[in-house]
Design a protein around this nucleic acid. Sequence first.
RNA 1: GUGAGUGUAGCUCAGCUGGCAGAGCACUGGGUUGUGGCCCCAGUGGUCGAGGGUUCGAGUCCCUCCACUCACCCCA
Length: 414
Amino acid sequence: MEFTTIKGFRDILPDEISYWQFLENEARKLFEVYGFKEIRTPILEKTELFKRSIGQETDIVSKEMYTFQDSKGRSLSLRPEATASVVRAYIQNRLYQKGGIQKLYSIGPMFRHERPQKGRFRQFHQINVEEFGDPGPITDAEQIIMIMELFNRIGLSDDLSLNINSLGCPRCRPSFREKLKSYLENKREELCSDCKRRSELNPLRVFDCKVESCKKTLQDAPIILDFLCEDCKEHFSSVQKLLNEFGIEFVVNPGLVRGLDYYTRTAFEVLTEELGAQNAIAGGGRYDGLVKLLGGPDHPAIGFAIGMERTIELLRKKRRIDERSPDLFIAALGEEARKIAFSNAIRLRKKGIWVEMEYEDKGLKAQMRRADKLNSKKVLIIGEEEIKKKNAILRDMRTGEQKEIDLNRIEVEI
RNA sequence: GUGAGUGUAGCUCAGCUGGCAGAGCACUGGGUUGUGGCCCCAGUGGUCGAGGGUUCGAGUCCCUCCACUCACCCCA
C-alpha cells in the first residue's frame, strides 16, 4: 500500500465514533452545569510558548515536540498539550478583564513525537479544563469532583483510582528539592542510571522509577509533604477535607509528580489497572505561577486533561455504546416504486426521520436483508400492488407485524 | 533512542521435517412468483510485508530492508 497514515497517527473510523461522541457529549453536558465555556485555540503556536511554560528541560519540550521553521524562519510547534495555548489566549484576549473567575474547556488533538505503544499515539486527543482566578482549595476540590463525576456518568468509576499530592509552592519546594538532592547524592551508588540522571535534572521524578532497588532506596527519602509551608499545608488539607466530605475516594501519593514544570500545590491523577503501561487516563493540577510567567497578571489557575484514546479504550472494554440505527428502510420493487420511495425518503428526512433505501434494482429478499443489517426499526414495502392501491406495507422488524398504510401517513405510523 | 515479538483474503487466524494457498467471520447470489435474523448450498476475494539468496521446487530455510505491536523511557 502506497499511502498509509504516518507512524503514531490513526484514523478514527465510523464504528468507533459513537464512543467519541458519547464521551464528548457527556463531558460538555457536565462542564456546562459547572459553568465552563468552550474555547478553541490553534494547534500551532510559537515554539517559545511551550519552552517557557512546560519547561525547556522536560522530555516533552526537549525531544517530543513537532517543531519546524516556517518560510520566514520562525520556529513553530504543534501543541504537545493544551494548557500553554489556553493561558496564552487568556492573556492575549484579556479574558481576566471580564472579572471574576474564568472557566474554560477545550477538546482536540495534541502531538508528541514519542515511540507509539498501547495507549500512546503521536497524535492523541484530550479533553482539557482550565480555571483562572481562584486560589482557594474549593476550586481544586470542585475540579476533582467534576472529573470523578464524569467518569461516574460514563460508567467507569469502578475501574479507576484517584491519586493526589501537593507539590508545594516556590516558597517551600526549593528547600525540599535541595534536601532530596543531597539525599540522592549520598545514595547515588544504589540508583539506576536513569535515576542518576534524574537526580541532577529533575530530582522529583525519581519517585516515578519502577526499578526495585530505586524504590527501596526511596523508602526513606524525604517526602514533599513534610516540607510544605503553612499555607500549602493548610491548602492541601482543605482539599482533602472537601473530597472526604463529598465522598470522593483518593490516595495521597507523595510520589506523584507531574512532568511539567509549571505545577504547584495540588496535583492529581486518575489511574487504571486495565490499560497496560500507560495507566493514567487523566491528570492535572494547580499552576499558580504560569499566567504571570507568560506575561499576564499574577492570577492563580488550575486545570486537568483527560486522555480520550485511553478513556475510550477502557470504555470499549467495559461497555457497549450502541450506534444509532435507521427509523425506516424503504424497500421498493421496480422503477416506479423506487421513484416513490426516493421522494418519500427525501420528504421524511426533512422531518428528522432517518430513512434508508435500496438504490439498485434488487429483490425484496435482498432489501430485507439489507434493512436487517442496518438494524432498521421498520421497513416500508412498496411494490406494484401497493402502487395500484396507493398504499404501502409497513413492517415492524422487531415484532414482525405488518399492516397496510396510506403513503401520506408514514410519519404518523412509525 | 534501546529491547523483544509479529507480518498469509476486508477481519481473526491455520498452514507439519520445503511439494497444487486454506478455515471461520464478512460480502454476493440461491434454497420456486414479493418478506430479514437461524440453517443449508454456491460464488467473489491473495504480489503469503518488500527485495535478494539456497533449492528441481520456498508461505515454509538464510540474509537485508520495511511496517506494525508491546515494553523501557515519558505521559493523557
